[in-house]
C-alpha cells in the first residue's frame, strides 16, 4: 500500500503554519501539503484540492467542521473512494499521522481523530 498524503485545507495561513510546525518537530517534509481557501470560490478551491491530492490516496485535514473548506473537501471525497476527510485539524493529530501513513485512508482518519482529541484537555492549574 502506498503511503498516504495528508492535505491540510484551511482558512488563511493556518495550513502553512501547521506544515511548518510538523517539519520543525519531526523533520518530515514530504507527507503534508497545505491549501488555503484565501481568495477562492468553490471552483478554485476544488482545483487546488485536485492538484494537492494528485493520484494517490489521501486524508484531507480541514480546519472547521463546516464552511467552504469542508464543503470542498467533502465534495472531493464523495467522488474519490481513496480519500477520507477529518475536521478540526490540530498539530497533535498531524504529528501522529506523518508516522502512520501505511494504512487505508479511513483507518488513518480514525487514528488522527483519536490522536487529536487526546491532545485537547484542561491542564491542572
Amino acid at each position: 500500500m502506498s503511503e498516504l498524503r495528508g492535505v491540510i485545507v484551511s482558512h488563511a495561513a493556518v495550513a502553512d503554519a501547521l506544515v511548518a510546525a510538523v517539519a520543525a518537530i519531526t523533520g518530515i517534509r514530504d507527507a503534508l501539503v497545505a491549501i488555503s481557501n484565501e481568495g477562492c470560490g468553490n471552483d478554485a478551491l476544488a482545483e487546488r484540492l485536485r492538484d494537492a491530492v494528485g493520484a494517490g490516496p489521501a486524508v484531507l485535514f480541514v480546519d472547521l467542521p463546516g464552511g467552504s473548506c469542508l464543503t470542498s473537501a467533502a465534495r472531493y471525497a464523495k467522488h474519490h473512494a481513496d480519500v477520507a476527510v477529518v475536521t478540526g485539524v490540530n498539530l497533535a493529530m498531524l504529528l501522529d499521522f506523518v508516522f502512520h501513513r501505511d494504512v487505508a485512508p479511513a483507518d488513518a482518519a480514525r487514528r488522527a481523530v483519536d490522536a487529536g482529541a487526546k491532545a485537547i484537555r484542561v491542564t491542572a492549574a
Partner: peptide
C-alpha cells in the same frame, strides 16, 4: 456569496 454558508456568514 458563491461559497454560500461559510465562516464569514455564520460567525
Amino acid at each position: 456569496d458563491d461559497r454560500l454558508i461559510h465562516g464569514q456568514v455564520v460567525v
